[in-house]
Design a binder for these strands. Structure first.
Lengths: 344, 344
DNA sequence: ATTTAGCACTCGCTTTATTAGAGTGCTAAC
DNA sequence: GTTAGCACTCTAATAAAGCGAGTGCTAAAT
């Protein structure tokens, strides 16, 4: 469909615009060494490319800028192979070489390194806690009225919840209840806990302890997980450096979306297949993200998807570099986690 | 030192500038109903006020703007009494009416409401965890190599730490150790834990369990609290609305300070006496905060300071309103916490 | 001795004009 | 099919002009 020469021109336009942020004109192009023909020819080709929707002008006599379709084509067919610098590779691997035992820390560190290296914003969706299996429940009375309920999963995830105790409940009852819960619920995925309690635990509790229904309500409420999966953000402020957000209003609009987290959650959840996914501008289908691209990758353990890691930047993003970096981080993270999970 | 008329003029200048953000000229002033004399008189008085350093011009023929000294005087002597609206008061009290059992949630909610009502940024320094007393330590093995150590304090604060276990340690040893620790350390303030372990627990452990030194190191490391006190931030993005930060570079400088948190920690720690404290511009002694004011208050339980709550805004801040709101939140928070702590 | 009216003057901001530069599209020649 | 040449368009930068808000000073009024 597109001639080789058109592809060449499109590629150079995108590359140059990503680098400089300035519209690219025929004169600039004709000076590139890869180009052997004149600026007039380029102008003709550019007119065609524009008609086909791959590039556009900012005003009637300006140079050309990639359109969303142009970026799309570039990402799909023209990505230059990138060789990451030795330094980048080392920086990334350094996180995974030191032993980190906490899932969250490892994820946070990955996000941070990625946002530092790219100068964009990184978002990570943690493993869905719902699938983690219960290791133990503890209820620790703080005073006569309140206690803190602690849930620990097999992954080392800890969630706490302060609850009220029924007035004048014997301490032995609390202990009894904890024993019953642990006995029956250890190994059960968190998402099934509520069901399991109703079907298998409720009647046992009823027999053994006072204030049965208060306690049951209490334990149910503390098991009712608020966050289905944790989200980690790193390098939000990097967006301040992007010239496309030098306008305070655009910046505010973007930060509103970022801070809400809701949309990101949705976007990251959507990525289900393996591999890298690039969503450009309106492809994200979020108002206010027209000027942004989101590159997502999944990380997994033994082929099973655990979570998603993504880089958010302007549509004028260093796709090639970001994809390589993201790829490396995602695979290294997967490897690290696989090792980690295998210890069980 | 200053005549009544000068005070009146100074006060109106500050009030008007806080409201409008525009330099205030003699003509504008002469139109205010409180003012009965002519603009020429005002000009004379303003010249004097400028000479004394209370106000300044942005350029040779501009209206006047309060200087830092002017704000200082205003805050110390000219603050108009503010009546909070019924609505504001209700909004604030609504948080404290609903029962919240988690210290952190209560604090976070306070911060959020304060930043919402003021449109500035709120920073809260939580109670120093070091002084909390240990309620219990739990060590929950996850697999052969790792376990999660959980510390619970009498305030319901929970800290977790993933640790490595010595290879092939008998599970009974872990249990024994936890028992010993709880027996000897319950009720001890967290800051004394390390000492106490060395002096009172080490030798007992030595007698009873294998891999004594690995276990000791492990438990020490997990007790070594990283954060001396938690810090909560709310409404960072409100700064985007302040016209003084419409310049991207100033914004970035400010966010750098905010995100670092270090400086804030220092600033909030400094506030030790009771009551409200207002630090204007360079009084904060932080590079990049010349255009900001920080209003701090402490909250306490039974007269003993627990933490600090503060509002950060531009020097052109609604001092009167913020002080009232902050005051209300701080006292209500203190009341709520006092009730909470009394339950023990 | 204050206070005020009047006036000349200073800037900053906005508007308008001008120009330089980059880029385009088209045509005609190669 | 390619390219040189040219007229044309639009932006961005610079300059000039005018407006408006504000000042300081002086001299008259109170």
């Amino acid at each position: 469909m597109l001639s080789d020469r058109q592809l060449l021109i499109l590629k150079i336009i995108v590359d140059d615009f990503i680098r400089s942020g300035q519209p690219v004109g025929s004169r600039t192009l004709s000076k590139k060494e890869q180009i052997t023909f004149s600026s007039a020819t380029i102008r003709n080709e550019m007119a065609d490319l524009e008609e086909l929707g791959f590039i556009e002008k900012t005003h009637i006599s300006s140079g050309r800028v990639p359109s969303q379709k142009g970026y799309r084509y570039y990402v799909d067919h023209l990505l230059p192979p990138v060789r990451l610098t030795q330094k980048d590779v080392q920086t990334i691997q350094s996180i995974f070489h030191e032993q980190i035992y906490e899932l969250e820390k490892l994820i946070q560190k990955s996000a941070q390194i990625l946002s530092d290296l790219t100068n964009y914003t990184t978002v990570v969706l943690g493993p869905s806690v719902k699938e983690h299996k219960l290791k133990t429940i503890q209820i620790i009375p703080l005073n006569a009225e309140t206690a803190v309920a602690i849930i620990v999963t097999d992954t080392g995830y800890v969630e706490k919840h302060v609850v009220t105790l029924p007035p004048s409940i014997p301490p032995s009852d609390v202990e009894k209840m904890v024993n019953i819960l642990n006995e029956r619920l250890t190994g059960v995925p968190l998402e099934d806990l509520t069901d399991k309690i109703q079907t298998e635990v409720a009647h046992v509790l009823r027999e053994h302890i006072q204030s049965y229904d208060h306690m049951l309500r209490m334990i149910s409420s503390s098991l009712d997980l608020n966050a289905p999966a944790q989200m980690f953000l790193s390098g939000k402020m990097n967006m301040l450096r992007q010239p496309e957000f030098s306008d305070i209003d655009k910046l505010r609009a973007l930060f509103n979306i970022i801070e809400q987290e809701k949309e990101f959650y949705r976007l990251l959840r959507k990525h289900n297949q393996q591999g890298i996914q690039v969503k450009i501008g309106t492809e994200n289908d979020v108002e206010g993200m027209e000027n942004c691209s989101l590159i997502t990758a999944t990380y997994s353990v033994g082929g099973e998807k655990l979570g998603t890691i993504a880089v958010l930047g302007p549509t004028r993003m260093e796709y090639s570099r970001v994809i390589s970096l993201l790829n490396l981080v995602a695979t290294d993270l997967s490897k690290a986690l696989t090792m980690w999970y295998q210890k069980d």
